[in-house]
Computed example of a mutant assay.
Amino acid sequence: MRAKKSSDLISPTGLIKLMTHAMMGAALGLVFGLALVLFNPAVANLLSHGGSQATIVFVLTLVATFAIGATLTGVVFILEENKQS
């Protein structure tokens, strides 16, 4: 009988992998927000009339959404990696 090994998500290496995925998602969210502002004048106009609060909410929403999505995708990738090995 094979001994059941613990999941890689709980180990320090797994947490570092998850943090890496979250940071990549946050960077991707920032790049997407910048591209959206640069290539869509309507968004830039809304942000300029909304003040600093609108800009902060816009950026934080994009960064959080992309970071959460990338972290969840990282969980799936790590679990699939464990199944194959």
Rank of each mutant, 00 (worst) to 15 (best):
N40G: 03
V37H: 05
M19Q: 11
P41V: 07
G29F: 03
T55P: 02
N45T: 15
G29V: 04
M19E: 00
F32S: 01
L38T: 01
N40Y: 01
N45F: 09
A26S: 13
L28A: 15
A27Q: 07
L15A: 13
I16C: 04
L18T: 11
F32K: 01
G25H: 01
G25F: 02
G51R: 10
A54R: 04
T20N: 13
A54H: 08
M23Q: 15
G51M: 12
M23E: 11
V31E: 07
T20E: 14
V43P: 07
G14I: 09
L34G: 08
M23N: 09
A27G: 13
G25E: 03
K17Q: 15
G29S: 06
V37E: 03
S48Y: 02
L36R: 00
T20D: 14
H21S: 15
A27P: 04
G14D: 02
H49E: 14
Q53T: 12
F32T: 10
N40C: 06
L28N: 05
A42T: 10
G25M: 00
S52M: 08
M24H: 12
S48L: 06
V43E: 03
T55G: 13
S52D: 12
A35G: 07
H49G: 09
K17G: 06
M19A: 14
M24E: 12
T20Y: 13
T55V: 15
A54E: 09
M19H: 11
I16W: 06
A54K: 03
P41S: 12
A35K: 03
F39D: 00
T13M: 08
M23W: 10
L38D: 03
G50F: 00
